[in-house]
Amino acid sequence: MSLESIALVGSQAVLGLVGVAVGGAKVTHQEDQIEDFQRFGYPQWFRILTGLIEIGAGLALLAGLVWLSEFTVAGGLLLSSVMVGAVATHIRTGDPLSKTAVPAVLFAFTAGLLIIRDVTIPL
């Protein structure tokens, strides 16, 4: 396995684990997540839904490492979509760059993963 392949697999694994972790923080009712969603003006059911989508995306990215590449596509699209929404929310609420940067970087890495993996999206 080449160094590039190892880096790609490692990046996908890390993104998958991050998706599971950040989603897990939302569905396990972490106080900072509850407060953030209140501050954003979103209902708490939306926090749970967002967390479940993030967990699903993370698991799909991890599953894509061992099974079908379609899992990578699904997980990447889900995670990057949620991160676009997170960036928009942080900008809309006037959050500092430090809070906006995390979802922006996760979006960039996830989009980059899909591009580098040369994943075609079936239409």
Score class of each variant (00 low, 15 high):
residue 36 D to E: 14
residue 96 P to W: 00
residue 87 V to T: 08
residue 95 D to N: 12
residue 14 V to N: 07
residue 20 V to R: 08
residue 49 L to R: 06
residue 89 T to M: 01
residue 67 W to R: 09
residue 86 A to W: 09
residue 50 T to L: 07
residue 81 S to V: 09
residue 83 M to H: 04
residue 30 Q to L: 00
residue 95 D to A: 13
residue 19 G to E: 13
residue 70 E to Q: 15
residue 11 S to E: 00
residue 66 V to M: 13
residue 23 G to K: 04
residue 100 T to L: 02
residue 85 G to P: 02
residue 52 L to Q: 12
residue 40 F to R: 14
residue 93 T to M: 10
residue 41 G to P: 01
residue 35 E to L: 14
residue 70 E to Y: 15
residue 99 K to T: 05
residue 56 G to T: 14
residue 29 H to L: 00
residue 25 A to C: 02
residue 97 L to V: 08
residue 43 P to E: 03
residue 55 I to A: 04
residue 66 V to D: 01
residue 91 I to F: 13
residue 10 G to S: 05
residue 46 F to V: 09
residue 84 V to L: 14
residue 55 I to Y: 12
residue 10 G to Q: 03
residue 35 E to N: 04
residue 49 L to H: 14
residue 26 K to D: 02
residue 35 E to S: 09
residue 34 I to H: 01
residue 56 G to S: 15
residue 70 E to R: 07
residue 71 F to T: 07
residue 59 L to N: 15
residue 55 I to H: 05
residue 88 A to I: 15
residue 94 G to Q: 07
residue 45 W to H: 05
residue 22 V to K: 13
residue 94 G to D: 04
residue 40 F to E: 10
residue 80 S to K: 04
residue 43 P to R: 00
residue 62 L to C: 11
residue 45 W to Y: 15
residue 81 S to L: 10
residue 30 Q to E: 07
residue 13 A to K: 06
residue 76 G to Q: 10
residue 21 A to K: 10
residue 19 G to H: 09
residue 46 F to D: 05
residue 22 V to D: 12
residue 96 P to G: 13
residue 84 V to C: 10
residue 65 L to E: 04
residue 43 P to Y: 01
residue 59 L to R: 13
residue 63 A to Q: 07
residue 78 L to H: 06
residue 61 L to T: 05
residue 24 G to S: 03
residue 82 V to H: 03
residue 34 I to E: 01
residue 29 H to R: 08
residue 45 W to G: 02
residue 86 A to I: 12
residue 98 S to G: 08
residue 74 A to M: 09
residue 14 V to C: 06
residue 82 V to T: 13
residue 22 V to Q: 15
residue 35 E to V: 14
residue 67 W to E: 00
residue 38 Q to L: 03
residue 95 D to R: 15
residue 30 Q to P: 00
residue 49 L to T: 12
residue 31 E to V: 11
residue 77 L to H: 13
residue 16 G to V: 05
residue 81 S to K: 06
residue 14 V to E: 00
residue 24 G to R: 03
residue 55 I to K: 01
residue 42 Y to L: 12
residue 52 L to E: 09
residue 85 G to V: 02
residue 73 V to E: 03
residue 10 G to F: 08
residue 18 V to L: 07
residue 11 S to N: 07
